Amino acid sequence: MHEVEQAEVRDWDFPRGVASVEVMVEHAVERGVQAERILAGTGLTPAALTDPDRQIDAHTELAVVRALVRELGTDDSGLGVAVGRRYRISTFGIFGFACVSSATLREAISLALRYYSLGFAFCTPEVEWSEREVITRFHYDRVPADVQWFLVERDIVAIHRVMSDLLGGAVAFTRAEFAFPAPARPEPLATELGVEPAFGRAHTLFGVPAELLSQPLPLANQATWALCVGQCRDLVRRRRARTGIAAEVRERLLPAARPGGPGVPPTLDAVAADLAMSTRTLRRRLAEAGTSYRGLLDEVRHTLAEEMLTATPMSVEDIALRLGYAEATPFIHAFKRWTGTTPAAYRRGRIGSAAALRW
């Protein structure tokens, strides 16, 4: 067994809830810093942090991070460890409940990667599965240098805490390596992770024993898992609700893939012509909006594929054709990339979950 699995996002610039900001503000207040100083310039108030539906962009959380580091820490302060240990599975709301109700740690990790944008991390992970050890490499080259070490510490310690919550006891990493010079005080990190960290390495990574993967989670429940995953999927869609040019392109892609539509989506050139602009201009405007024609087409296909698998008796082959694929194979590969499973397995799971809930 040797596989590599990546997070669904490759960058930290995705919308998020305010629970992470609340965690950091609480830490600052306990250290004697007024909440208003940490939130200055963000448009947020302490009261807003209790709103579970409040959504912010990543740059707002980054402003809070910078204020926290300015008020409380340096690279050698251990601030990232102190803040990271405050993140628990309950911090992540329905996303956390979906992980808790997973059957095994392997399933929970795959789910976390698939819905990584429902978290608060700035570092993006890549997980390598092997027979003896599971290695998670952190990528953070796009994270601003002035807060890079804090966020690496915070995110790794937060993941360690969440894994410990999932398994019902402290997890000791097999190793922890950092592509940073050793801080003046590495002891808090070593104590938290249960292993002596190594610094000045080529990559930032941590490992856990492979045997933990198949260990049943204490709160595993298939029906709860199915409900929570459905809510995670809906939350991702709401957060990705688009405006402006991206919404206009998306609207032009939807009719082609809906039942009764022509099946073949319009090309980028055709969409640009319909919007009375050049292909180059459309491509540039989509890039400025943080998306692309290919990304929007994937979103539309993903959404409609799940709808058709759940609500219609159409075969996988017919759905593939309806979505504009020449045959089923490339659709199956794409669906597995979107969801981590095959269309047939997804349909069986949805049918099974519905039956369990009716029972």
Score class of each variant (00 low, 15 high):
323 L>K: 06
140 Y>C: 14
77 S>V: 10
207 G>I: 14
146 D>Q: 08
128 E>K: 10
329 T>L: 11
261 G>I: 03
307 E>K: 00
151 L>A: 12
13 D>T: 08
135 I>G: 15
324 G>N: 09
5 E>W: 15
134 V>W: 04
90 S>E: 11
88 R>G: 15
42 T>K: 02
130 S>L: 07
290 G>D: 03
78 G>S: 10
342 T>I: 14
196 E>H: 09
17 G>Q: 01
146 D>A: 12
224 T>Y: 10
168 G>E: 05
18 V>R: 00
82 A>I: 06
98 A>P: 02
65 V>N: 00
45 T>M: 03
265 P>I: 07
327 E>R: 07
308 M>L: 15
85 R>K: 11
184 A>R: 06
139 H>E: 11
207 G>N: 10
296 L>T: 04
306 E>D: 10
266 P>E: 09
146 D>H: 09
335 F>D: 12
307 E>M: 08
133 E>K: 04
102 S>K: 00
249 V>N: 06
345 A>N: 06
23 V>L: 04
123 C>N: 09
259 P>K: 05
102 S>H: 05
321 L>H: 11
94 I>N: 08
312 T>K: 06
69 V>C: 07
247 A>F: 03
191 T>M: 07
267 T>Q: 00
302 H>S: 12
17 G>C: 06
123 C>I: 11
106 R>D: 15
133 E>I: 14
25 V>Y: 00
312 T>H: 10
131 E>G: 13
44 L>Y: 03
342 T>S: 14
311 A>H: 05
114 R>A: 15
56 I>F: 00
175 R>E: 08
152 V>T: 09
37 R>Y: 05
39 L>A: 05
182 A>W: 02
9 V>M: 12
308 M>S: 12
19 A>H: 01
161 R>I: 15
233 R>C: 12
344 A>P: 04
356 A>R: 07
127 V>L: 06
65 V>H: 00
321 L>D: 09
199 F>T: 09
205 L>A: 05
49 L>F: 01
97 F>M: 10
164 S>V: 07
200 G>L: 06
252 R>Q: 05
40 A>N: 01
104 T>E: 04
88 R>D: 14
215 Q>N: 08
92 F>V: 13
263 G>K: 02
268 L>P: 00
219 L>P: 03
